[in-house]
Amino acid sequence: MNKGIFSGIIAAAAIMLIGAIIITTSANVKNSSNEDFAGKILEIKKEWNNAGYLLDKTLADKLADSVDMTACTFTAPAPSEIDAYFRSTIGNSIKNCNFQDVQIDSSAQANFEIHFALICSKKISNEFEIKKFEKIVAFAKKVELIYIPAPESCTITITDLQSGIVEVQKTV
C-alpha cells in the first residue's frame, strides 16, 4: 500500500465531518429563521384583524356621536370626520397599522356603509425587510332613532348590519 494513503483517508473523513457540521448548522439556522418569519406573518395578520375590529367599533362610536340628541336627528359624518376618529383609535393602539381612502358608499340613516384600505406592516428578520398585509375593508351600520315627546326622550341604536350586533344603545 502506498505511503500516505491512510493520511488521505483521514483527511477526507475530516473534510466530510467539517462539511456535515456546516450543513447541519446552516439547516438549523434556516429552520429557526423560517419559524421566525412565519410567526411574524401570523402576528401581522392578528394585528390586522384587531385593527379592523377597532375601526369597526370606532365607526359605530362616530355614528352615535353624529346624532344631535336635543333634536333627535342624525347627520351623516363626512369622510374626514371618520378619518379623524380612525386616526385617533389607531394612534392609541396598533401603531404599525394604517388606513387609506375612507369612502362612504351609502350615507342613508337606515344603511350607512363605508369602505377603505387597511394596511399593517412589520419588520421581519432584519431592519430592511418589511412585510405588509393590505386588504379592503367594508363596514355597514344601521342608525335608528326613536323620539318620544312626552316625557321627552331620544333613543339611539346603532346596529352592525354584517353581524347583527347592537353596538350602541343610549337614551337621552
Binding site: 384587531n50 375590529y53 377597532l54 367599533k57 370606532t58 359605530a60 362610536d61 362616530k62 352615535a64 356621536d65 346624532v67 340628541m69 376618529y85 385617533s88 383609535t89 393602539s93 396598533i94 339611539i156 346603532i158 353596538e167 350602541v168 344603545q169 343610549k170 337621552v172
Partner: peptide
C-alpha cells in the same frame, strides 16, 4: 390585544 367599546363614555366624545 385591544378592545373598543363605543357604548363607553358620553355621546359626542370618542371612546
Amino acid at each position: 390585544i385591544f378592545d373598543y367599546n363605543p357604548d363607553n363614555g358620553p355621546l359626542g366624545t370618542q371612546s
